[in-house]
Design a binder for these strands. Structure first.
Lengths: 198, 198, 198, 198
DNA sequence: GATGAATGAGTGTTCATTCAT
DNA sequence: TATGAATGAACACTCATTCAT
């Protein structure tokens, strides 16, 4: 019997996609295995053929989402253009993805909440932010090296950049009317960097 | 029979305090009524004498926490000092409260999560942010009127200010090591306002 | 909250009696909690208020049955009459009890089977046999001291006495037609002791 | 399509052997088809090609074990030597087999337990005991005819002989320390027959 | 007001069995 | 013959809520 991890990744993806939809709609605790099964068009037995437990699904889903984010973050460092241009493109992409599926925001909030209960999820979320901060820091330093920016406290700037992204996304996900993500991010860049341009 | 809302407010407070502790520790869905009862040192029957349901407790707790935040926010507008001084004092207080009880951050995350399920909570959280943004906007305008700041897009600045606070708090609550809330907030103010001083 | 062990012993007895009936009828593995609940005329929640789990019920039931057997065994040593008379009375009682409830035999077989899975049950059953052998040995020695019997290998006689009782009971419980427990036990005594009478 | 009973008997034997090991180790109810499949090194589909169901396997296994016992029992009647010598040899063989595989005792107990649920197994076990008693009776009568023994109640003696064997085996299988099967059986013969020798 | 025993619908998980390949 | 993915009914256990005392 092969390990479950090795089993048909299409089916696994199908289940994770269904779980994501149900989690976003009903919350993780409000999601019943029967709901995920129905959403995926599978039987309960099949679900358990691919995953050991609900927690197993949750962790796999967080892993998948976060590994997608990682890929995007890594592109940021090596792409062309000035630092500010790249940040703007990154924010545009971030905004487009969130707005293409309004449930993604809710899903993110569920991830925060479940991180308090599942150590593995907590660790994944932490790693994601460490990576995000690290990438932001690398970018900021690039800007300095290339003479684009003059920065006194690069580390705190990096954390504030990440906090702005996450905070704005949170407000938007909660449904604060005044938040237009695209506008908001552009203004954030202007605020943070206008005084820092070389 | 009088409405439950009018019953001994000490007992209600005692229950809400217990619920807050249990919610923060175990998550709202992970909290059992028995846990709250044990934490409060009461019996189950007594708890239900004061509250109709678990959701009722949750809503009341969110109301209580948010009304405390409201009080703080309102002081911001009328206090003495420059806008930046007042923001610094507000952030110091915010930091002190969070650090005095490390579970408060977790509790906040639970509130986000439950907002997706309980409409009343969602509305309270939304109102809180609306208010926060409104206060930030009033402050920013005060700064402009008094000639302390020159601001082009006050509304977006206000939202970004709130986003920075919430984002930083979130990163801190998740446990990102590099986040020192006090430092972070001071740096945020410097970044946002250095270029805006008159 | 008091420990479950301290809770109303009438309800506990009621549940154990129901469990005994269902276990004997359907086997332990074939018994559903719903069946026990229905047999006891209680709700599932109530059952779990008094017992932690199905295993908990099983162990408590074995304890109860075996502690009853212990009581009978102890009387054997101190009762009046010759050793052989006392054994005959004991066997009569044993027979009467088994025949009064034909499911008791099945229940005993279930206990053997579950002993392989629940360490606590295994230990209880083992203790019961140790005690049974010890009592048989004490009786045999009394017989010798009082000059009623002349015995060469008292320990092995004791074990064989117990083996005869258990073996006969087993054959009877399985439903071997030719086994008339009362006759069988009388004949067993005759066979074992006729050659040993002083 | 040929009846399953006619299919490759090697595969069937392989499966039954695996089932015996798993049943003894985990109990029949605790044994999963997957466990048997893993133990046999086969796939689930293959197992179901040879057997219709778990009960089918169980019944076949009981049949196999009991038919082996039958073979031994029949040899008893026709072998050379006095009745007591033959019983001693039979008991030695019985002991050797049990001690060669300590799980056999557990397996026997599982058979008793499942007999309460599967009529076919009950019937097989009953037949086995009927046969065992019949053989014991034949032996006893042989002893009488040949002038080796003087017996008053041959039928009850036969049942008691079987009860002693089964009871001793049971005590041993449960793990009572003091039971040394070989010693025990020798002592049983001495007790039962010493007074009966012609 | 206060207690804690009682309720039962709901949930994650298991596992014998089936069947397309 | 052989495989192992797929199925779904069944089950132990949970927990918010009720109510007799």
């Amino acid at each position: 019997m092969s390990a479950k991890g090795e089993r048909s990744s299409e089916r696994r993806a199908q289940i994770l996609q269904a779980a994501a939809a149900v989690y976003a709609r009903q919350g993780i605790d409000g999601a019943r295995m029967d709901d995920i099964v129905a959403e995926a068009g599978l039987s309960k037995g099949t679900l358990y053929w691919y995953f050991d437990s609900k927690d197993d699904i949750t962790v796999a889903l967080v892993e998948e989402v976060i590994s997608g984010e990682f890929a995007q973050l890594r592109q940021l460092v090596d792409a062309d253009g000035t630092v500010i241009e790249r940040l703007e493109r990154f924010f545009d992409m971030h905004t487009a993805i969130l707005q293409s599926n309004p449930l993604l925001g809710k899903l993110g909030i569920e991830f925060y909440s479940i991180a308090g209960k599942l150590d593995k999820v907590h660790e994944l979320v932490r790693q994601y932010y460490e990576e995000f901060v690290a990438v932001a820091l690398a970018l900021v330093r690039q800007g300095e090296e290339r003479g684009e920016l003059r920065i006194e406290r690069p580390r705190e700037l990096a954390v504030n950049l990440v906090a702005l992204v996450e905070g704005s996304t949170l407000l938007w996900a909660i449904g604060i009317q005044e938040v237009d993500l695209a506008q908001q991010f552009r203004n954030a860049i202007a605020l943070l960097f206008d005084g820092l341009r070389a």
